[in-house]
Computed example of a mutant assay.
Amino acid sequence: MNDLIQPETLLRQLNTVQIFEVGAKTAQPIQAEKASALYKHAHIPTAQYVDLNQDFCNLRTALEYQYPNKTEMLDSLKKFQVDWHKPIVIYDRENHIWAARLFWILKAFGHPQVQVLHGGFKAWQQQNLSVSDQIKKPIASFNVAALTFDSTYFADINDVKNVVVGHSNVQLLNVLRAEVFRGDELRYSRAGHIPKSINIPFAQFLDENGKFKASIFNFVAQFGLDLNREIIVYCGSGITASGAALALRQAQATSIKIYDGSMSEWSADPDLPLQIMV
């Protein structure tokens, strides 16, 4: 199954798939309220609204948006009455990164049929497809057998440390804006980037319409990224990295992991090295 689904294809499948809109920038109360209001005003018919600051995340850590444990995952699946045997389509309103995050979590927990709407809600609207302001209440359809977690979808801080000290030849990919990567702009506890990182800002994975570029394989090679070697992707807290990871899957990258803690975790430890470009 292709990771991406086109609006016209989703239109034909509306009655046979589970649809989720993932709200953007939900860590800030004002932004969370705005994202929820946009959904309530108009969304793809039958879509349920997911807030990744509350659902499908680890609520036991101070770090934002970390992947859930099995209990938390089951709680979210029950909340939305997910049928594990029914296809899932996810979309957002912000360049795929939020939809990609939920996609990555569902794949890590073994869902066999999950896709992201290519172009998101914007692409749906551009084709003048129907929208709804009806809030869908979950129908009693929860059906999940034994839940498994594939840890190869994620990297932890020790995996990254091994790269930095030379014990691993895995590639580190930083997808933050160039200003943040260089250290010109302070976004986290300390400025700069993790040593040995390649920087490809996430926006460069997208075309002028906000869709993933068709020629990602050739494009990333210009930055020295080898898609035939393992890649650990990081950003600030794992969200933008999820968008890049989904893009790299479209280019058939061999092995992709997301460092969930990303700069939020790494920069908070003063004993860990950061590089600043001068």
Rank of each mutant, 00 (worst) to 15 (best):
N15Q: 12
S36K: 15
K137G: 15
L246E: 01
V165M: 12
W104T: 01
P112T: 06
P7C: 11
A245E: 02
Q134P: 00
P87I: 03
Q81S: 13
N128Q: 11
D159G: 02
R249H: 14
I198P: 00
P87V: 02
A244R: 07
R60K: 06
G183V: 13
L74I: 10
K78Q: 14
I44V: 11
A47P: 12
V50S: 00
I44D: 01
G192H: 02
Q66E: 13
K196F: 14
S215N: 13
H43V: 12
Q222A: 15
Y188I: 03
D83F: 10
K79S: 07
M277R: 08
R93M: 05
T61M: 02
S242N: 01
S197F: 15
M73L: 09
N143S: 15
M1Y: 05
N174H: 15
A247R: 09
L59C: 06
T9D: 06
R229F: 09
V114A: 04
H111M: 03
A251C: 08
N2M: 05
Q18I: 01
T61Q: 06
F219A: 03
K122P: 01
I97P: 00
R93F: 09
A203C: 06
S168R: 11
N143K: 14
L52N: 14
V116Q: 00
P201S: 04
Q125K: 09
P273W: 05
L10E: 05
F202V: 06
Y234G: 01
R187I: 03
H118V: 03
T240C: 02
Q66T: 12
G224H: 03
I258A: 09
I30C: 07
T16E: 11
A108G: 14
T71C: 04
A123F: 08
R187N: 10
N169H: 12
L186D: 02
Y234K: 10
E94V: 10
V114R: 12
Q6L: 14
C57W: 06
N218A: 14
N209L: 09
M1E: 06
K107F: 12
T26R: 09
V180T: 15
A251K: 05
L176W: 04
A27W: 09
I139R: 07
D92M: 08
Y65I: 01
A214E: 00
P68C: 13
A35Y: 12
T71K: 11
P45S: 07
G261M: 13
A146H: 04
L10F: 04
D184R: 13
I198T: 08
L186V: 13
H111S: 07
G210A: 10
Q125L: 08
D51W: 09
I231Q: 01
V163T: 09
V164I: 11
I19M: 06
W124T: 03
Q13F: 07
K25C: 06
Q115Y: 00
I19E: 03
H193N: 13
D159Q: 05
V220P: 01
F121I: 04
P45V: 11
I135H: 02
V170T: 15
E72T: 05
S132E: 08
R182K: 14
G119M: 03
N53H: 15
A42L: 09
K79W: 05
